[in-house]
């Protein structure tokens, strides 16, 4: 540890003081703009209107527990739909030639780069009472009165699945691409059928990608705000829109702080727990 400045320089290492100085701006931004304000917000939930857990007794109200429960259900349903729809797309990307794969990847990335706000606008155009979906269904005489789709949980789940699909497709496609082509070939030579190759080789080896995608989608959906705010109704609140409502309509900062603590603990907690699972999976897969 007692290297001289010259020796350190020759090893390409930066002096300690300089590197601390270089980390400072980022540390200041992250602590000053994200960490400190967030902690202060969470703190108000314990200190105001009086010291104690009053705001958390309020979270425990059946009404709000229902919102929490609905948030988990919506996140779960979105994750499930995203896996089911994402896997076939990932297989197409991993198996196709260069040009077909490029077209498919473009179809995944363009929506990812289209702001969620604009995509919500598109879903409103589709789902509203005289929107494209209802007009099509009435014209083809499948229904006589327009269906109520907008401002329901179904609209929120469909739109959220659309938002989250790219985050599912990309990690699965990466894990599929990483499978050595020799493995399915060897299985084929040993007489395995297409289905048994899928169930016993492709699917197990793509599990790390599936786990990564599910983790990302579930956590992102828990905190999603724009989609439920625009496509959900007052009866389809999620925890994030409930937090927004406390600020924009009710001005109840301490309760918003309490709800935020629940959301942050859920997001960070799930990430931490599943990360460990992910690593465990890798150990099992590669050792």
């Amino acid at each position: 540890m007692s290297l001289t400045e010259l020796e350190r320089g020759m090893r390409g290492e930066l002096p300690k003081r300089l590197s601390l100085l270089m980390i400072m701006p980022t540390a200041a931004l992250l602590i000053g703009v994200i960490t400190l304000p967030t902690l202060l917000l969470l703190a108000t939930s314990f200190t105001s209107p009086e010291l104690g857990f009053k705001n958390y007794y309020k979270v425990n109200d059946p009404l709000y527990i229902l919102v929490l429960f609905r948030t988990m259900i919506i996140a779960g349903a979105t994750t499930f739909l995203a896996v089911c729809l994402g896997y076939p797309v990932a297989v197409l990307i991993a198996r196709s030639g260069k040009i077909v794969a490029a077209v498919a990847i473009a179809c995944v990335l363009v929506p990812l780069w289209t702001p969620v706000l604009i995509r919500s606008y598109a879903w409103i155009i589709f789902f509203q009472p005289n929107g494209l979906v209802n007009r099509y269904l009435i014209e083809s005489q499948l229904i006589s009165k327009p269906l109520r789709i907008l401002y329901t949980d179904a609209a929120v789940v469909i739109a959220l699945t659309h938002v989250m699909l790219p985050y599912m497709v990309l990690p699965i496609a990466n894990s599929l691409k990483a499978i050595s082509p020799d493995l399915p070939k060897a299985a084929q030579n040993l007489g395995a059928g297409a289905w048994s190759i899928f169930w016993r080789i492709t699917l197990p080896l793509s599990l790390p990608g599936i786990f990564a995608g599910c983790l990302m989608v579930f956590v992102l959906t828990l905190g999603a705000y724009v989609t439920p705010a625009l496509l959900g109704g007052p009866s389809t609140l999620m925890i994030s829109t409930l937090i927004g409502q406390q600020i924009t309509i009710l001005l109840d900062w301490p309760f918003a702080g309490a709800l935020s603590l629940v959301l942050v603990v859920l997001s960070l907690g799930i990430t931490a727990v599943f990360r460990r699972l992910l690593k465990l999976e890798r150990v099992v897969a590669y050792d």
């Binding site: 967030t38 202060l40 905190g223 999603a224 937090i243 942050v264 997001s267």
Partner: peptide, 9 residues
Amino acid sequence: VPHIVVAIA
């Protein structure tokens, strides 16, 4: 950390 929390904080 969800953006809604950062936003109101």
